[in-house]
């Protein structure tokens, strides 16, 4: 299979949020006014100013000990993107070389609600002023120029890695098997359907409500 993929090994994530800010830096997105609502997580939602959010989820495991799960949420760059159902021309295009699902300025003409409903992961958002739809670009401009996606580059622990799609899919499946030894519920999320593949130690619902899709 061609193109590239990103592996998100959440078992190595420390929620340093380097990826979240690196995304803002590269894409020159504004910092928005936020409030603390009893969690480290902020901003609260994806928007035309935020393509990526580290989700913080905590609770108590069966052993009575606390857990704190970190899930760096972004577009999965699906192989068959549900958000493209309404596309007529080139509002949304797939870069054949990289595999990136890229929203062009023409997305302003798309039905936002329908596009959003087409996405199992609740990713697309609309710029209130321009009506253009926005989301993670796979840093297609960087990737096309031999650079790593900004978020992958920023990641210190190897929680995010980037590579050829077949290698990343294999790595995801291998990591799932490794983690299963200690964490029976460990799972690689639909590696054959998406380019951004998450590996989790536990039930996806304990990470983020849309981790495994709606």
């Amino acid at each position: 299979m061609s193109g590239y993929s990103i592996l998100v090994d959440t078992s190595k994530c420390t929620a340093c949020r380097g990826c979240q800010i690196a995304c803002k830096e590269w894409n020159q997105l504004a910092g928005t006014a936020t409030k603390n609502t009893g969690s480290y997580e902020n901003p609260k939602d994806l928007s035309s100013d935020t393509y990526k959010i580290v989700r913080f989820a905590e609770g108590q495991g069966a052993n009575g000990k606390a857990f704190w799960h970190f899930f760096t949420e972004q577009c999965r760059h699906c192989l068959s993107p549900g958000c493209m159902a309404e596309v007529e021309e080139d509002e949304i295009v797939v870069d054949e070389k990289t595999g990136a699902v890229v929203y062009t300025p023409k997305t302003k003409d798309l039905d936002f609600k329908a596009t959003l409903e087409g996405c199992p992961y609740d990713i697309p958002r609309q710029d209130a002023k321009t009506k253009v739809l926005t989301k993670c670009t796979f840093c297609n401009d960087r990737v096309g120029n031999g650079m790593l996606p900004a978020c992958v580059k920023a990641c210190p622990t190897g929680a995010m890695t980037f590579g050829k799609r077949d290698e990343i899919v294999a790595a995801a499946k291998k990591r799932e098997a490794e983690l299963k030894k200690d964490f029976p519920k460990a799972v690689a999320l639909t590696p054959d359907d998406v380019r951004v593949i998450y590996v989790l130690k536990d039930d996806p619902k304990t990470y983020w409500k849309y981790a495994a899709g709606r």
Binding site: Y4, N27, L29, D95, E96, V102, Y103, V132, T137, N140
Partner: peptide, 26 residues
């Protein structure tokens, strides 16, 4: 930058030759 990933896309994008703007939508 690209570590050991060989066969990188190289300068320019395949689709850009079709005249489609692949810069981020914003």
């Amino acid at each position: 930058e690209f570590l050991a990933i060989s066969g990188a896309v190289g300068a320019g994008l395949a689709l850009s030759s079709l005249g489609i703007d692949l810069g981020p939508a914003k």
